[in-house]
Amino acid sequence: MQTLAPVFEAIERAAHRIHEAITNEDTDYSAHSNQSGDVQLKLDIQSDLIIAEEFSRIPLVKAIASEEKEEEEILHEGGQLCIAYDPLDGSSLIDVDLSVGSIFGIYDGEWSAQKMIASVYVVYGPRTEMVTAYKNNVRHYTWRHGRFKELEQIKIGEKGKLNAPGGTQQHWPSHHKQLIDGLFAEGYRLRYSGGMVPDLHQILLKGGGLFSYPGTTDKPDGKLRKLFEVFPFAFVYEMAGGAAVDEKGNRLLELPCSDPHETTPCFFGSTYEIGKVKAAYGAE
């Protein structure tokens, strides 16, 4: 495998351009919907175009797949990497000025969790930050003076204190509600913005906890997409010393994926909280 430096550099350039767009462009909705049926902001479309343009300059990148595209796009037939990305996760939060992010899963030759070799996410908040998971290291960067500067390596604690439960509560299964209520009874604090990137970032940096998006009566297969969101964060959490599973207790990184927009229930956290998930779901 060649070095991934050109890919990381392309992500850095894209992140800077997206940050500028978020700061300076309008936040109106477009007249279009994406493959998942979500009405797209103009910033969703612009962010997608920015990232595709940056990757188009990297011969190593064979194909890209985006939450905003129906199908994969071949960039370089002789390339090696397949990169799936969510260009602007949580974009509906922009109009209330909450943090949003971009997520990247980097796959070696095919769209399979077993072929993931790196993942990256970017947080656009009070500061623009980036986290990379590559070669068994999870590294944290912040944007300063025109470039990303490394701050630290990230390791998640064995037990945390934050609880970020997704999905509409009235549609939760009863055992999931008992799980969430039980964590609150242990003293866990609610931290849920509706943005996957800032919520999972906070759990990582604050020592641990649980982010959950279960299967619900209205979305039995969950809401979050495997290639663009679930697999990349599972890769980060496992490399940081945590765990990531589905409702059956299976590692998310062992799940098959037959469609770029396929979803799954998912749970990310410290080993203690994931143990609680497995017990609640009868998957011990």
Rank of each mutant, 00 (worst) to 15 (best):
A133K: 11
S47F: 07
T271Q: 13
R17M: 11
R17A: 15
G146A: 03
A283P: 02
L151G: 01
R13D: 07
I11W: 08
T128M: 15
V7N: 06
D97G: 02
E152D: 12
N163D: 01
H16G: 10
I117D: 05
F235P: 10
L227I: 10
G105E: 09
Y85L: 03
E273Q: 08
V277Y: 12
E77Q: 14
Y272A: 07
G195V: 09
Q2L: 14
I83D: 02
K159Q: 15
H176Q: 04
E129A: 03
V39S: 12
H32Q: 09
I103R: 04
Y141R: 02
Q153F: 08
Y281C: 06
L43P: 07
P165D: 08
G79C: 11
K115W: 00
E238D: 12
D259Y: 12
P6D: 05
G37R: 03
G79Q: 13
A84G: 15
F267S: 05
I18K: 13
F184T: 10
I83V: 13
D48I: 00
V236D: 08
T168M: 13
S92G: 00
F148G: 01
N163Q: 07
E73M: 06
I45F: 03
S119H: 07
A5M: 11
V122L: 09
V39P: 07
S193V: 00
I154S: 06
M239T: 11
Y213A: 12
L200D: 01
L190I: 04
T271V: 15
D26R: 06
L210N: 02
R191K: 14
A52K: 14
G101A: 05
S33L: 02
R127C: 02
R127I: 04
I154F: 11
E262A: 15
V120Y: 03
W143A: 05
S56L: 03
F8A: 02
F228V: 14
K69N: 05
Q80F: 09
E9P: 01
D97Y: 14
F235K: 14
A279S: 12
G109V: 05
V100H: 10
L49V: 00
I64P: 04
E67P: 02
F104P: 05
E70R: 08
D86K: 10
I274P: 08
F104K: 04
H175K: 12
P173E: 08
S91K: 06
G195E: 04
K223Y: 13
L205D: 00
Y237E: 14
K69A: 04
